[in-house]
Design a binder for these strands. Structure first.
Lengths: 104, 104
DNA sequence: ACAATAGGCAACCATACGGTTGCATGTCAA
DNA sequence: TTGACATGCAACCGTATGGTTGCCTATTGT
């Protein structure tokens, strides 16, 4: 879980996920297109995404295809974000009440 | 958005959010209890959470009360995670198909 | 009034991180 | 077969990050 959060912390990596979401199964070079960084930098990012299980790869000849794995993202939604949604209204009214009472 | 992701990337900070979720409106010292780090370290973490708008604070006398703001968490769920859930099944079957075809 | 309590500020430190360059390896196509 | 293409590996670099220590300020209870 920690690895997933850390992987998602970087905007370049989130954008890579976006691109895979738009078109799945891209090669390294395809994913490099238009990005203002070296291929090696992208390789590292993809490595981190793969280590976090957010991306799976398949080698096809001399190419490496990258596939998005949305499961960890989904799990964060289910196991982490949902927890905070339950208490949301209560927390907000708490906060509001507290902020208002500070004017007294 | 980026600030929120970055703030959530650290396990200590997520645990602070958890503690505020369990009991809202705690002081700095209360939040320090049982944590294996200095008060100053916790202060920094809370500062990052506050900068990301995940925590709001109210000063009451010499104490500072910390309140969870679940809105950014909710937004990540809505604006970011949901996007990937839509294509989830398609992506998974894509991946499955690709993995299987690599055995051919 | 004043000691204790709650917190703030700033400098410092080690390490992690994002990125680069340079070179090596493996695969395809003519 | 050999050159071009796709990727891998490793060393290196500057900066961000998480954490510490030391000291200062403000509030409070007695």
């Amino acid at each position: 879980m920690d690895e997933v959060f850390k992987a998602l912390a970087d905007a370049s990596r989130r954008s890579l996920l976006d691109r895979l979401h738009a078109e799945n199964g891209q090669t390294l070079n395809e994913l490099c297109d238009g990005l203002a960084m070296t291929r090696q930098a992208v390789t590292k990012h993809l490595g981190i995404l793969e280590a976090a299980n957010l991306v799976s790869t398949v080698k096809r000849g001399r190419e490496k295809l990258h596939y998005l794995n949305p499961v960890p993202i989904h799990q964060i939604g289910e196991r982490w974000i949902r927890k905070f949604e339950r208490g949301k209204l209560a927390a907000l009214s708490d906060l509001k009440r507290r902020l208002e009472s500070s004017d007294e």
